[in-house]
Structures are given as structure tokens and as C-alpha cells.
């Protein structure tokens, strides 16, 4: 029988890549989605099939990490073999605006899910999406699984809660539970308010004359950026290991926002300095220092390695966003010519 996986956060960047990976491996995939009047399933629409088809292997169920009873019901019905908890309020800067909500979903959402497992009495494998933001004001460089945490945002604090409660359930209830401490991972599906995607969207839109300026926060911030698709593979590998454990997933290379700008704008033959302005509104109240991960444990134990380099990552994102920008331009031209012809008709 096919293995069953449950993914929270399936509509997000990582959820969509993970869904692809698991479907490829023959899993039945169940995704938890929140009810919202606007559809937000763009990232998985290409994978979705009519649930009335007998061989449908991707199904979506309504639920919320804020709502314990929904989690209980879902687990009781689906009885998954593997759970990937990727659902969260995942934006660090925004967490300063909605700290309580971030704590509810990103922090307590995880314990609600773990408790639901215990209540339903199933013992699936559990993956918790932990984050390099746990290291915040870093206490050593590079960071490993043994580096002490120092979270510097409501998001980081909530993720630290989720990390430790996952360890606690592993130790107290003998649950196969893993933390993947993932450093920044980007892709053409990255949310458009994240700096990497903001840059590639802007570079390509500026190139086509759709935009003039790009406002960013701290340009000197350095991050260890990998490709999300490589990273979801690491998640799956953790769940197939002999023993549950926690792993850092990173490239081991740090690049500044400036370098990301250089790389992106030069791919479209532009000089970013002519377009980029710093806006202190995008600064975080407390900035994190040099996040640089050491994934040697993941390499040694899981045999995991990233496949996509920094340069290739930026290229993938630029290529994708250039197409988006071209479509946008084409749409605009259609609209303008429609308007023009309407004006002509009106005049006659």
C-alpha cells in the first residue's frame, strides 16, 4: 500500500516542492489548507486532480494549526505514516507586527499537532520545519546542530518553542520526530515579500520597464541561500533514517544581499545601484548576524548534498521571473490596445 503523508503548509514554497517529491515517490499526499475567500493554492494547482478520480493521490483537507479539533479529526481520518509540519506564519519582519499570531501558529501549532497525535494514538514519523533564525544573534560561525540558539524575533522565539517541543515529544513519548534546521532556501516559488524574490521580480520587471525602483532593508545582511527543492529532499531523507534526529541543512556559503543584487541584475544586464534604495522601514528591530550553516552531519548521516549553486539559484529565479514579467507586459499591451480601440469606438 502507498505510504501516506500529511503536509501542513502545503500551499507554501516548501510544501509545494515536497508534494511533488512525495508524489514522485508514490506517496498519497494529504495537505491541510486554511479556509480563505481568496484561493491561495497557486503553487500546487499544477499537481491537483479532481478528487472524484479514483487514482487521485493528492487531497486537500480544511484545517488550521490554531484549531486542535480540526487537527484531531484530520489525523483520525487520514492516519498518516509521515507528517511534515511546514505550516507557519513564516515572515520574520511581519512577526514583529503580529507576534501573538506568530506564536499561536508557528509555536503552539506544533504542540497542537503533536498532542493530536498522542490523542489519536498513532505513531507517525514527524518532521518539524525548524529554521536558522533560531541562531539569530549567532554565538558561533558556522552554525551546527550543537550551536546554542539566540532567537531575535517573535518568529525565532516561536520556532524555538516548536523545536524544543518536538525534541520533548521525541524524548518523552518515543516519537520518531526530527527537526530540520533549514537555512534560507529560495526558489521561483518564494513569496514575493522575501528579499531574494523581491530582487528577482524587481530586476526582471525593471528590465521590461514595468517598475522603476526597488526598496530594500539592510543590504549588508548575509545569508546562506540554497534552493528549496534540494532542501525538501533533505526533509524526506531525515524521515527515512534509522533514528530520528535533528539536522542542519545549508550550503555552507554566505552571500550578502548586495551579492544577490549583483548576480540578479547582471543577468538582465542592469546595474542595480541605479535602481535600489534602502528603506529603514524594512529593517528588522533586531537584525541577525552572519547565518552560515554547517551541514556536515546531514552529509555524513543522510548522504545529503545540495545540487544547485548560488549562481544557478539566482539564474533559475531570474529566468522564471523574466517570463512572468513578459506575460505581465503582454497583458498590459493587450489591455492598452483594448482601451485604445475602445476609445476609437467611443470617438466614432
Amino acid at each position: 500500500m502507498a505510504k501516506r503523508a500529511l503536509i501542513t503548509g502545503i500551499t507554501g514554497q516548501d510544501g509545494s516542492f515536497l508534494t511533488e517529491l512525495l508524489l514522485d515517490k508514490g506517496y498519497e499526499v494529504y495537505g491541510v489548507i486554511r479556509r480563505s475567500s481568496s484561493f491561495n493554492t497557486d503553487r500546487i494547482d499544477h499537481l491537483y486532480q479532481d478528487p472524484h478520480e479514483p487514482d487521485t493521490r493528492l487531497r486537500l483537507v480544511y484545517g488550521d494549526l490554531n484549531d486542535s479539533s480540526s487537527l484531531n479529526t484530520i489525523l483520525r481520518q487520514i492516519k498518516p505514516d509521515e507528517i511534515y509540519n511546514l505550516g507557519a506564519q513564516s515572515h520574520v519582519r511581519v512577526s514583529f507586527d503580529v507576534p501573538e499570531y506568530t506564536g499561536e501558529v508557528t509555536g503552539l501549532g506544533c504542540v497542537r499537532l503533536l498532542e493530536a497525535l498522542r490523542e489519536v494514538g498513532i505513531q507517525p514519523k514527524f518532521y518539524q520545519a525548524s529554521s536558522s533564525e533560531l541562531y539569530g544573534k549567532v554565538l558561533e560561525v558556522p552554525q551546527t546542530e550543537n550551536t546554542p540558539f539566540y532567537p531575535r524575533s517573535p518568529y525565532g522565539c516561536a520556532k524555538a518553542y516548536a523545536y524544543y517541543i518536538t525534541v520533548n515529544y521525541r524524548e518523552s513519548y518515543d516519537l520518531f520526530a526530527c527537526n530540520g534546521i533549514l537555512f534560507n532556501h529560495e526558489s521561483e516559488r518564494r513569496g514575493e515579500t522575501f528579499v531574494s524574490r523581491k530582487i528577482t521580480r524587481a530586476a526582471t520587471r525593471i528590465k521590461l520597464g514595468l517598475q522603476n525602483k526597488l526598496y530594500l532593508g539592510n543590504l549588508d545582511a548575509q545569508r546562506d541561500w540554497g534552493y528549496a527543492k534540494d532542501y525538501v529532499e533533505a526533509m524526506w531523507m531525515m524521515m527515512q533514517a534509522e533514528e530520528p534526529d535533528d539536522y542542519v541543512i545549508a550550503t555552507g556559503e554566505a552571500h550578502s544581499v548586495r551579492e544577490f543584487l549583483d548576480e540578479s541584475f547582471s543577468l538582465v544586464d542592469l546595474d542595480w545601484k541605479e535602481y535600489v534604495e534602502e528603506d529603514p522601514r524594512y529593517y528588522r528591530p533586531a537584525e541577525v548576524d552572519l547565518l552560515l550553516g554547517d551541514a556536515s552531519k546531514a552529509k555524513r548521516v543522510l548522504g545529503w548534498e545540495r545540487k544547485v549553486s548560488f549562481k544557478n539559484l539566482v539564474r533559475i529565479m531570474i529566468d522564471h521571473d523574466l517570463k512572468l514579467a513578459q506575460q505581465e507586459l503582454a497583458m498590459q499591451e493587450v489591455a492598452t490596445s483594448a482601451l485604445a480601440s475602445k476609445a476609437r469606438w467611443g470617438a466614432s
Partner: peptide, 9 residues
Amino acid sequence: WTTVNYRES
């Protein structure tokens, strides 16, 4: 951590 965070931020 939230307390430290409010002090520093």
C-alpha cells in the same frame, strides 16, 4: 527569549 527580544528590539 521573548523578554530578551523585547529588551533588544
